[in-house]
């Protein structure tokens, strides 16, 4: 068993190439993620893989439960949480990867990727979450 996505219906495919969003068939509004309960008015849609950082913050302290990532206060590594604007779709809340908190800029171009929740976990046990990285 290789790396596994953190949840079903989050990514479009096993290679985790894009996120699954939701589209309201009546209003056209696109949002993320798919609702927990099926709804005839909502259809899944692949979200764009390129966008720009609309805003961001940095998680500086280890979160409490239900956080399932590494939360040891000594070795905790702060992570960036951004809203990434996907043109014509929606803004997705997502971690940024491959950039230090000090170097993040609003307006920065980013592309979709998947990253392990705990980079130190053995490769075959990794749980994958969504992220964007600078282009």
């Amino acid at each position: 068993m290789g790396a596994q996505p953190i949840a079903d219906n989050l990514f479009t495919d096993d290679n985790m190439t894009a996120l699954v969003g939701a589209r309201n068939k009546q209003t056209g509004q696109i949002f993320f993620p798919l609702p927990l309960t099926p709804n005839d008015n909502i259809e899944p849609i692949a979200l764009a893989t390129r966008g720009t950082v609309w805003t961001y913050t940095v998680q500086r302290f280890p979160p409490k439960t239900p956080y399932a990532g590494p939360a040891d206060p000594v070795n905790f590594k702060p992570y960036v949480v951004a809203y990434v604007s996907l043109p014509g779709q929606t803004m997705v809340e997502s971690r940024l990867t491959g950039v230090e908190p000090e170097d993040v800029k609003i307006g920065m171009e980013v592309e979709f990727t998947a990253i392990p929740l705990d980079p130190d976990a053995p490769a075959d046990q990794q749980i994958m979450i969504h992220a964007f990285q600078p282009v």
Binding site: I6, A7, L10, P33, P35, L36, W54, T55, Y56, T57, V58, Q59, P63, T65, P66, Y67, A68, G69, Y79, V81, A82, Y83, E93, R95, I106, L117, I129, H130
Partner: peptide
């Protein structure tokens, strides 16, 4: 809040993040 469990497990379930991101913008 009608959110899936992964939202909390992946580290987004913090009010402090919302306040930071909102005022950053």
């Amino acid at each position: 809040y009608g959110l899936p469990n992964w939202y909390g497990e992946a580290g987004y379930m913090l009010t402090t993040q919302f306040f930071g991101a909102k005022i950053m913008r």
